[in-house]
Structures are given as C-alpha cells and as structure tokens.
C-alpha cells in the first residue's frame, strides 16, 4: 500500500540525504556515530533472513540498507574521522541495548534465534535515534541537511502506522503485529518534539535551532 511504499522510500531518502550531507560538506559533524552503529546492529539482527527473502522488493531494500549503513560507518570512522566529535556523542547506549535485549528476551513471538533477534532489532530501532537527538540537544542547532535526514528517517516509521491500520482492515486475518506496532508508535513519539521544531522552523526556511 501507498503508506508502506512512501515509508520505505522515505527511509531510503534519509540515507541519501545523510550521504549527500557528508560528501557535500566533507564533514560528518552533527551526526551521532553511536546512532549509526545502532542502526547497523538493527539491520544485521533484523535481516538475518536475508538469504531466504522471497520478495525482490524486500531483498533489494535489505541489501541497500545494510550496504549503505556500512558505507556511512566507513565514512565516519575512516574517511571523515577528524570531523567526528566523540565529545558531543555521549549518550549511554548500553541503556538502549539493555532495553531492547530485555524486551526481546521476555516477549518474543517464539523462542527461536531469528525471532528473538528480530524482536531485539525492532525494539532497538525504536530508540536508536536517541543518541542523535541527545547530540542535537547538546549542540542546540543542526545544519539543514542533518535536520532533513532526521525528519525523513522519522517519517519512515510514522508512515508505517497508517500502513498497519490499512493492512488491519484490508487483510482478512486482521492480524496485529503487537511488537512492531508498539515499538513503531514509541519510535514516532520519540521524534514528535523534533518534528514540531522541524515543522515550525526548517519548513519555514529558518535554521533548526532549539528554543
């Protein structure tokens, strides 16, 4: 459905915006390395089923997400390392890993390796933006491209919500994926404050600056 497709393309667009920002400005300043590593972990643990992916659409997106994230991490850790300031990227990710690990171990759909890792990836993704938002809060402002990146990334999961509602009514099984939906709503709520400032400032041509 349209929400699902727009969501996935928003996710892809966010990655292109981030790569464009890094290469255009020859700098990864303002980007949280920790968040990027968390996303890498999200993709690895969620796409363990990559070799068995039957849909070409999903297969292509999975390969694109994993490879582009690897490239982003390479750029931040090697090519543009001097522009990456670890002193601003101080969020304690062990809390996020603990949160996702605990929920994955307590409430997986099934106790299989794939299911536990899948649940871990869903919960971890829901909070993986926090180091980035924390960094943004410390600097108090962001370049336009960084703001566009975070907005596109946030829109992706927000668009999955109408997708789930649409699927609930259009599919005969009326199934609700409680883990994905709960985590997806949590993820979107975490962005809400950012979305508000993005909407009131950046979309009106102003700089992204916290009050």
């Amino acid at each position: 459905n349209i929400f699902r497709v727009l969501g996935d393309f928003s996710h892809l667009a966010s990655i292109f915006i981030l790569l464009h920002k890094i290469q255009q400005l020859k700098s990864c300043s303002g980007i949280s390395f920790k968040s990027q590593v968390l996303y890498m972990l999200v993709y690895i643990t969620r796409y363990l089923d990559l070799p068995w992916t039957s849909s070409p659409y999903n297969f292509i997106f999975k390969v694109l997400f994993i490879s582009s994230e690897l490239y982003i991490i390479y750029l931040m850790a090697r090519a543009y390392k001097p522009t990456n300031d670890p002193n601003l990227d101080t969020f304690h990710v062990e809390f996020l890993l603990g949160f996702a690990g605990l929920l994955a171990l307590l409430f997986p759909y099934k106790y299989t390796i794939l299911e536990v890792f899948w649940a871990f990836s869903i919960w971890l993704e829901s909070v993986a933006i926090l180091p980035q938002l924390f960094m943004l809060q410390r600097t108090g402002e962001a370049e336009a491209m960084t703001a566009h990146y975070i907005a596109a990334l946030g829109m992706y999961r927000a668009l999955y919500i109408p997708n789930w509602i649409y699927r609930y009514f259009s599919e005969p099984t009326h199934k609700v994926d409680t883990i994905a939906v709960t985590a997806g709503i949590l993820q979107t709520i975490l962005y809400s404050d950012f979305f508000w400032i993005y909407y009131t400032k950046v979309m009106r041509g102003e700089k992204f600056k916290l009050p």
């Binding site: 699902r4 996935d8 996710h11 089923d49 849909s55 999903n58 997106f61 999975k62 997400f65 759909y109 099934k110 299911e115 899948w118 999955y160 997708n163 099984t173 199934k175 994926d177 994905a180």
Partner: peptide, 10 residues
Amino acid sequence: KEAKAKKDEL
C-alpha cells in the same frame, strides 16, 4: 506461519 507473515515488512 503466524510469525512468518509479519516479516514481509522492512
């Protein structure tokens, strides 16, 4: 089967 169905998302 139940668990398989939702893995059609990214």
